[in-house]
Design a binder for these strands. Structure first.
Lengths: 196, 196
DNA sequence: GTCTATATACCGATAGAC
DNA sequence: GTCTATCGGTATATAGAC
């Protein structure tokens, strides 16, 4: 991966984040060294500090960018009036979006404990904003008689845990395609909260 | 934490595993040093190697003991004929057992990637055996018309992900007690797979 | 913008005294 | 059974040459 010296500011910054994302997803934040990331990019370790003040900020930026993209995408969806249609779309969106970004999802899930308290709080706030989007769908469905839940907050977390679980085992070479998997999960989620 | 020299073989072994479990659950395997574990126990770093051949085996033993205890407990439950009763009991058991062992559960989920390939395969086999216990309940329920599922394997994983998710947010000081939470989840799980 | 070199500190694991 | 001391290696981050 060695390369000769030169100026590549425009491309090196993103490549640092891409390399960090790939390595951290595979080996974990604490186990990945700045030297490994630099080798993956093709620069020396010291050069990384032109693009991030330190290793912690590199991790924080990966997680923040992931959550901001997730929120921007879901909040840009046109509203749906029918609660069942909204929940069905949410389930399929969540699975599809997460299966398209396995590395970022894995990091967002596994590396929370390696954030400083301030950075953790910022990521947690974004995560709660996403959760609230699902809670709003469920709340509306209950109010309109389409859904029945023992507890709104529990149901919200249960559904997100169920849907995110797909990323732990799904492989593109497996027996089911991602649309088929998403359809199965959407069906189960709807049953979970359906009114009798 | 310093202490004077002496012989404490009977107590030091378990205390090493307890300290390792506490520290690894909080900071992650890669971020915890043998020196930190030794300090927590109250011995010097070199003394740890009387109780484990290396750091990797220490992690593997924690995960193996956790899975073996989980399997022994669930497989010792008396059989239930009604599929709905069996699933209800499984959901409550899973949540109760996991909430009682938050550190072991956290490690079992987060540190799989830090196992050597051989150790990973052994833990994965135990995990699949546990999953199969739930799959058997669902399969029986489908055969007897109590349950209806889009896919047996997906439903098994979806339910385990949903139930295990409780450990990520449950706090004993929160608004709901653990039995109340378990009851809500059991109700949702039953709805998820109920026949129409 | 990137390099080489380095400061300072910690790591896992082992050897040998007691 | 535990300690002290240490080996060989790696870590993050910085300084200064080009």
């Amino acid at each position: 991966m060695a390369r000769t010296a030169g100026s590549h500011a425009e491309t090196t910054g993103p490549r640092v984040r891409e390399a960090a994302q790939r390595l951290i997803a595979r080996h974990g934040y604490a186990a990945v060294s700045m030297r490994q990331i630099a080798a993956e990019v093709g620069v020396q370790a010291g050069a990384l500090y032109l693009y991030t003040p330190d290793k912690q900020t590199l991790l924080y930026d990966l997680m923040r960018l992931h959550m901001e993209e997730l929120l921007a995408t879901v909040e840009a969806l046109p509203p749906l009036d029918d609660p069942r249609a909204a929940l069905d779309r949410f389930a399929r969106f969540h699975i599809g979006h997460h299966l398209d970004r396995p590395e970022a999802v894995f990091i967002a899930y596994m590396e929370l404990r390696n954030l400083t308290p301030e950075n953790f709080a910022a990521i947690e706030a974004l995560r709660r904003r996403y959760e609230e989007g699902l809670a709003a769908i469920l709340r509306d469905g209950v109010a309109r008689g389409a859904f029945a839940l023992p507890d709104l907050r529990l149901a919200t977390r249960a559904i997100i845990a169920m849907l995110t679980g797909v990323t732990h085992w799904f492989r593109d070479m497996g027996p089911m395609g991602r649309d088929e998997v998403a359809a199965c999960y959407a069906e189960m989620v709807l049953k979970t909260v359906a009114a009798p």
